[in-house]
């Protein structure tokens, strides 16, 4: 986790000179040793990351059977001839389900993920700003304090919210004692609780990229904008936002993508109405033991996520290139 870095212009200039002078930095003649080094991580990721997705895709094209494993084989041999049967039922049933459960839960998941992202951004930006502009010593402490909850168990954090959002929990008690409400309000099992949970758990993932983006901001631009008669709000959108654009996008993707498939938070805090797609997948898999359908749900989710993942990947690469130029 980067704690931000100051950018020194002379450094960058020298780095550019260096790169031009030594093309070897850009074009490296790989040796067998380099390939030996690539081997382990690459093969690991191929087997344990790429291969599983091919398998999911394969299984999503079969139908459920009462067998071990509980799905029909894709390739069968009948009378000596090889038969490949691709079942598209799983996909069609997702879209043509009479109750519209799947479609509705996809839309609900998108909605929850999108709103959570916006909330995280609205809350996270001021926090990141407060961190980035504090004195270095204070900044270290605050930084640690903001990050620390995410190092404790997720379930424990959700559990903590369950205890204070209960009917007789701390929040209701305080609100009643203050006379704001007369009778306890139902917070658990509502969408509100899900939003609170997601924002609480994903906030650090938003704050971190924003923080490191804000650390790199050239604050003299703000002064220049003020000097040229720009109003605060306009200044914010014309100087800070463009400079932290990559941080904003990276943070948003870090919240949006995992939130879309979130299972634990809606399961523990959400009610019947928050049937998100993560829960559907879980239920199909564990309760109904319909592996092919669960796979089809996962593949559909992946298709939805391809665009955000590609955006995140692009941003990551661009930041990387920038760092290369800066080093």
């Amino acid at each position: 986790m980067s704690t931000g870095f100051s950018v020194n212009m002379t450094y960058i200039r020298r780095a550019f000179q260096r790169r031009r002078k030594e093309p070897s930095m850009a074009v490296h003649n790989n040796t067998w040793r380099d390939y030996a080094l690539i081997f382990l991580p690459y093969v690991w990721m191929l087997i344990f990351f790429l291969l599983p997705f091919l398998i999911i895709f394969k299984i999503s094209l079969s139908v459920t059977e009462i067998a071990i494993p509980p799905y029909s084989p894709l390739v069968t041999f009948e009378e000596g001839a090889m038969q490949i049967i691709l079942h598209l039922e799983n996909y069609t049933s997702i879209f043509t389900d009479p109750d519209g459960t799947y479609i509705r839960s996809y839309l609900k998941s998108l909605q929850v993920a999108a709103f959570s992202t916006v909330f995280c951004l609205l809350i996270g930006y001021p926090i990141a700003w407060a961190l980035a502009t504090s004195k270095p010593a204070v900044r270290n402490v605050l930084f640690m304090l903001v990050i620390m909850p995410s190092w404790t168990s997720l379930v424990v954090r959700i559990y903590a919210w369950m205890t204070i959002m209960k009917k007789d929990g701390l929040i209701n008690d305080v609100l009643m004692a203050l006379g704001i409400i007369d009778s306890p309000i139902q917070m658990l099992q509502t969408d509100f609780a899900v939003y609170v949970g997601i924002v609480y758990c994903y906030l650090p993932y938003m704050v971190l990229p924003l923080f490191s983006a804000l650390m790199k901001v050239d604050y003299s631009l703000i002064e220049a904008a003020y000097d040229l008669g720009c109003r605060p709000v306009k200044t914010f959108f014309s100087t800070l936002v463009p400079q932290t654009k990559n941080g904003i996008i990276a943070g948003s993707m870090l919240v949006f993508i995992p939130a879309l498939g979130e299972y634990v938070i809606p399961e523990l805090l959400g009610g019947k109405s928050s049937i998100l797609i993560g829960r559907i997948l879980w239920q199909e898999f564990f309760n109904n033991r319909d592996w092919p359908l669960a796979s089809a749900v996962a593949i559909t989710m992946l298709v939805i996520l391809i665009i955000p993942i590609m955006i995140f990947y692009k941003i990551e690469r661009r930041e990387q290139e920038k760092l290369y130029a800066g080093k």
Binding site: P258, G261, G278, L281, W282, A298, P308
Partner: peptide, 10 residues
């Protein structure tokens, strides 16, 4: 970034 349910299932 991938949702954990997908990684887990895969």
């Amino acid at each position: 970034v991938l949702p954990e349910v997908i990684t887990g299932l895969a």
